[in-house]
């Protein structure tokens, strides 16, 4: 007899099927299916382009999905432009290291205003289209559960992540306990050089609205009236 009789009941197979939709980096959870780039382009233009732009380049509702990756990146599995501070923004394809993530996310969350409305084959197709826009798969490619592991081997940033850090609070990965930034708590005559290196320029003073209206009307201080110049 369980300690809490009557609480919780076994999930049915149909229920598990309805909700257990996640797809892991090793493709566990990926349903069978397939979709060619060409179909993906149709889906994209009908369901995605309005927000993300015809070529995934739009910055209207979200950062661009495509751009910034090269054929060389596909070879190395490292996106070189991540080191290029002059390159504007970081696109999805520059960052994503596991193709499962793209599939899983589009499947669960896109289109943004009608998530979970795509059929499985449409998810394959539109993922193929995005990969094609990034030059990762050719125009005549059909993405499927059978070949997606091969695509993973061509993902531009597949080698671009590390878990060698102290910020995963478990033992399965990372190196818990070994902080990377080791500051000291100096108390007197410390090295600090109290020179201001960065502050908001006067023209940006009111960018977040009038701060006088963002502070309590009473207390040790008021909000500064940023509709007027400083001083």
């Amino acid at each position: 007899q369980p300690p809490y009789p009557g609480i919780g009941r076994t999930a049915t197979p149909a229920e598990l099927k309805a909700w257990d939709i996640d797809v892991r980096p090793d493709f566990k959870g990926l349903p069978k299916g397939a979709g060619p780039v060409s179909q993906g382009q149709d889906v994209w233009e009908a369901r995605c382009a309005a927000c993300h732009g015809t070529f995934g380049e739009s910055n209207e509702v979200f950062s661009p999905l495509v751009g910034g990756t090269t054929a060389e990146d596909i070879k190395t599995g490292r996106v070189a432009r991540l080191n290029d501070r002059t390159f504007p923004g970081r696109t999805t394809l520059m960052k994503v290291s596991t193709v499962s993530t793209l599939w899983d996310y589009i499947n669960r969350a896109m289109p943004w205003n009608a998530p979970k409305s795509l059929k499985t084959d449409e998810v394959y197709a539109v993922t193929a289209y995005l990969l094609n826009l990034g030059g990762i798969v050719p125009d005549d490619f059909t993405l499927s559960d059978a070949n997606i592991a091969d695509v993973q081997k061509r993902l531009p940033n597949r080698n671009g992540v590390t878990t060698a850090h102290a910020m995963w609070p478990g033992k399965g990965m990372g190196k818990a306990g070994d902080f990377d930034v080791k500051a000291k708590a100096c108390m007197h005559d410390c090295e600090a050089e109290p020179k201001v290196a960065s502050l908001l320029p006067d023209f940006a003073r009111n960018n977040n609205g009038n701060l006088a209206a963002q502070q309590r009307l009473v207390g040790p201080q008021r909000g500064v009236d940023t509709t007027r110049p400083p001083g």
Partner: peptide, 22 residues
């Protein structure tokens, strides 16, 4: 009371609006 039909709870089987919208 969870109205569990043979194949499962309609609140699970039929995705709610909030899972399918903005």
């Amino acid at each position: 009371v969870a109205q569990t039909a043979a194949d499962g709870d309609p609140n699970i089987l039929n995705l709610p609006e909030h899972s399918k919208g903005l």
